[in-house]
Design a protein around this nucleic acid. Structure first.
Length: 360
DNA sequence: TCCGGATAGCGTCACACATC
DNA sequence: GATGTGTGACGCTATCCGGA
C-alpha cells in the first residue's frame, strides 16, 4: 500500500471509528468495536464475577428530563422490580446532531469492500454529500456544553481575539487590503492588526503580523507598530488608510524605551502622514471600480485569490484546532462514561447481592 | 547510519450552508 | 444571487521511531 493510500486508509478508519462512537452516543448503544474493548475491560474489572443474567435486567426509561436523576427499573430474576437511582444523572445527550446521516456514513464505508468500482464512485459522491451536512465542531460542542454543565465550550471568535496576545491574534477580518509594488498584500484589520502576505512564499513565511501599539508616547504624527518579521528583505514601506504611510524605521530610536525592550531586534515601523507624493516603490492598490486595463484586472483577480487563500488558510487552521478540541472532549467524555458504567455495574452487583435470596 | 512506517500538520480545493 | 465561512478530502512535508 502506498503511503498516501495507507494514509487514506487510516483516515477512513479513524473516521469510521469516530462515526461509530458518535452513533453509539446518539442511540445509547455501544458500537461493536468499542463494545469489544469495553467488555474486555469490564472482564478485567469484574473478573469471574461477570453477570450472565444481565439480559434479564431491563432498564426502563424513566422519562425524566435532563438534569434530573434517572430512575432505573431493574427486573430481577426472581420477578422483583427494583427502582434504582443510579449514577447516571441524566440520559446522556448526544454529541452529534444528525444520527441518521452518520449511520448512513458507517454503512457506506462498511460496504466498500464488496462494492464495485462504479458503486464506489457513487458512494464517494454520496459520502461527500452526507459529510458536508455535518454541523460544525463549534456548534456540536456548544450544543453539548449547553446540555452538560461544565462541559468545555468553544468560544466565539470575538472572545478568542480578545484573549490572545496581540502578536498571535493576527487573523482578524481585514477591512482594508493594499498591495505594494513588490507584490505583498497588506491587510489592516479593525483592531489595528496589520497583516503582510507575501504571494511568492509559502505558509507562515508569507504572512506576517504587525500590531499597532498606540499606547505610550509616540512622536507626534507617528504611530509605532511592532513587526514580527520573518523575512527581512530590506526596507519596506506601505500605506495605511487615512493618507498615512508605514515606513520601516532604520533605527529604533523613535520607539519608546519599553517597546525597544519588548521588540528586541525586530525592525520598527512607523505610520505617519506622507511628506510628499507616493514614495518610490509604493503602489496603492486601486479600488475595483477604478480598474481599467486587463493587467489591473488580472492583478485584482490575483489579489482576491491571495486574500481568499489567506483567509482559507486561517480558516483551516481554526477548523483543525476546533476539531482537535472536539476530539479531546469526546475522549474525556468516553472516560467519564466508562467510569459511570463501572459504577453502575458495581451498583447492580450490590443490588443483586441485597435482593437475591440466599442459597447457603 | 539508513530506510521505511506511522503520525502530525499544513495548504489548497471543492462543496454545502449561512448571510447579506 | 453573490459572498463569506466551515469543513472534508487530498497531497505533501517534517519528524519520530524501530528494525536492518
Amino acid at each position: 500500500m502506498s503511503k498516501c493510500g495507507r494514509k487514506k486508509y487510516i483516515k477512513t478508519n479513524l473516521r469510521q471509528m469516530t462515526m461509530e462512537t458518535i452513533d453509539s452516543q446518539q442511540d445509547g448503544s455501544i458500537p461493536d468495536s468499542v463494545a469489544e474493548s469495553k467488555s474486555a475491560h469490564m472482564q478485567t474489572q469484574t473478573g469471574q464475577n461477570s453477570i450472565p443474567t444481565l439480559a434479564q435486567v431491563s432498564v426502563a426509561g424513566s422519562g425524566t428530563g435532563r438534569g434530573s436523576p434517572a430512575v432505573t427499573l431493574v427486573q430481577l430474576p426472581s420477578g422483583q422490580t427494583v427502582h434504582v437511582q443510579g449514577v447516571f444523572q441524566t440520559p446522556q445527550p448526544s454529541v452529534i446532531q444528525s444520527p441518521q446521516i452518520q449511520t448512513v456514513q458507517v454503512a457506506t464505508i462498511a460496504e466498500t469492500d464488496e462494492s464495485a468500482e462504479s458503486e464506489s464512485v457513487i458512494d464517494f459522491h454520496k459520502r461527500r454529500e452526507i459529510l458536508s451536512r455535518r454541523p460544525s465542531y463549534r456548534k456540536i460542542l456548544n450544543d453539548l456544553s449547553s446540555d452538560v454543565p461544565g462541559f468545555p465550550k468553544i468560544e466565539e471568535e470575538k472572545s478568542e481575539e480578545e484573549g490572545t496576545s496581540p502578536n498571535i491574534a493576527a487573523m482578524a477580518v481585514p477591512t482594508s487590503i493594499y498591495q505594494t509594488s513588490t507584490g505583498q498584500y497588506i491587510a489592516i484589520a479593525q483592531g489595528g492588526t496589520i497583516q503582510i502576505s507575501n504571494p511568492g512564499s509559502d505558509g507562515v513565511q508569507g504572512l506576517q503580523a504587525l500590531t499597532m501599539t498606540n499606547s505610550g508616547a509616540p512622536p507626534p504624527g507617528a504611530t509605532i507598530v511592532q513587526y514580527a518579521a520573518q523575512s527581512a528583505d530590506g526596507t519596506q514601506q506601505f500605506f495605511v488608510p487615512g493618507s498615512q504611510v508605514v515606513v520601516q524605521d532604520e533605527e529604533t530610536e523613535l520607539a519608546p524605551s519599553h517597546m525597544a525592550a519588548t521588540t528586541g531586534d525586530m525592525p520598527t515601523y512607523q505610520i505617519r502622514a506622507p511628506t510628499t507624493a507616493l514614495p518610490q516603490g509604493v503602489v496603492m492598490a486601486a479600488s475595483p471600480g477604478s480598474l481599467h486595463s486587463p493587467q489591473q484586472l488580472a492583478e485584482e483577480a490575483t489579489r482576491k485569490r491571495e486574500l481568499r487563500l489567506m483567509k482559507n488558510r486561517e480558516a483551516a487552521k481554526e477548523c483543525r484546532r476546533r476539531k482537535k478540541e472536539y476530539v479531546k472532549c469526546l475522549e474525556s467524555r468516553v472516560a467519564v462514561l466508562e467510569v459511570q458504567n463501572r459504577k453502575l455495574i458495581e451498583e447492580l452487583e450490590t443490588l443483586k447481592d441485597i435482593c437475591s435470596p440466599k442459597t447457603d
